[in-house]
Design a protein around this nucleic acid. Sequence first.
DNA 1: ACAGGTTAGTTGGAAAATCCAACCGACTCG
DNA 2: CGAGTCGGTTGGATTTTCCAACTAACCTGT
Lengths: 160, 160
Amino acid sequence: MNQPTETSVSAPRACFIAAGLDVLGERWALLALREMSLGVHRFDQIARNTGASRDILTGRLRTLESRGVIERVQYSERPPRYEYHLTTSGAEVAPILISLAAWSSTWMRDETPRASYRHSCGADLNPVVSCAECGEEFTPGSLMLGPLVSTAGTDPASDQ
Amino acid sequence: MNQPTETSVSAPRACFIAAGLDVLGERWALLALREMSLGVHRFDQIARNTGASRDILTGRLRTLESRGVIERVQYSERPPRYEYHLTTSGAEVAPILISLAAWSSTWMRDETPRASYRHSCGADLNPVVSCAECGEEFTPGSLMLGPLVSTAGTDPASDQ
DNA sequence: ACAGGTTAGTTGGAAAATCCAACCGACTCG
DNA sequence: CGAGTCGGTTGGATTTTCCAACTAACCTGT
């Protein structure tokens, strides 16, 4: 396991998980990104396929755009029409969706029929997460806190 | 990429990602699980470290418990005191936290100092997600829809 | 004995987020 | 001309969350 981390005093833990959830953790955000990863880019279809109400979906898409996760692309001049595409950052959300889908298909099995996922090789979804450094598979408990990082202007190529 | 999936008609896509978010997507749920993965098991500390208000946190922990993700364990008889532990299912949320932390530390870099994560081997967090079947690394776009699955009573050992 | 601290909550009321159905503008198609 | 498409916006109801205070049941030190 892990020895308890004693934040003895008070303030919430500022970590990258919390920061990621700031952007991806709002309602409907991940489902909207799921749609885009599956090739659905139009507002109406995203609304339908996620179940989000149109007004909050509008808000979410604006937030995701402002955070650089998606892009709003005009595909028709007259009338002006837009569709939504993943940026590089958005495309890299895939591992999160994959882990979520894998966890869910292992632990959320019940009578209701759901769409499963698979890898493009054709196999049922069965992802293995390993450390790029040592090659070892991540086991529960092998996630540990590292040092505090503050990285003004170290963004990996300002996007796109 | 992926050819658009035409759910021609109406209903939201019932998939394992949506099902997973049903449980893990509520506010504070993943942060509470993060705390438990880091070895923090007491209500007060979880509340402090996540920033969740105590009433909401109570609700979340109850939901997670009822869904089999965590267990409420009595550690003192008098007065009755409880702490929260991950079940097997809960421990397996780790890959989601890992992917989230990795995405965030790549794309959410700004001036505010945050705790980073690392693998137990000591290396900075740098997870690779690959297909257990073919061994290939998952690339953005290699997540595809599979068939509908309904699996009453196929749970992997009714839990722990 | 009593004040003070710890711990896991609960309570009530305010504030924020979400839901929903209907509407709008600018088109296109038959 | 009427109907349909598409990407929204609007107003009002509902739900969720926030917040600070409070409780119950102890323990610890003076």
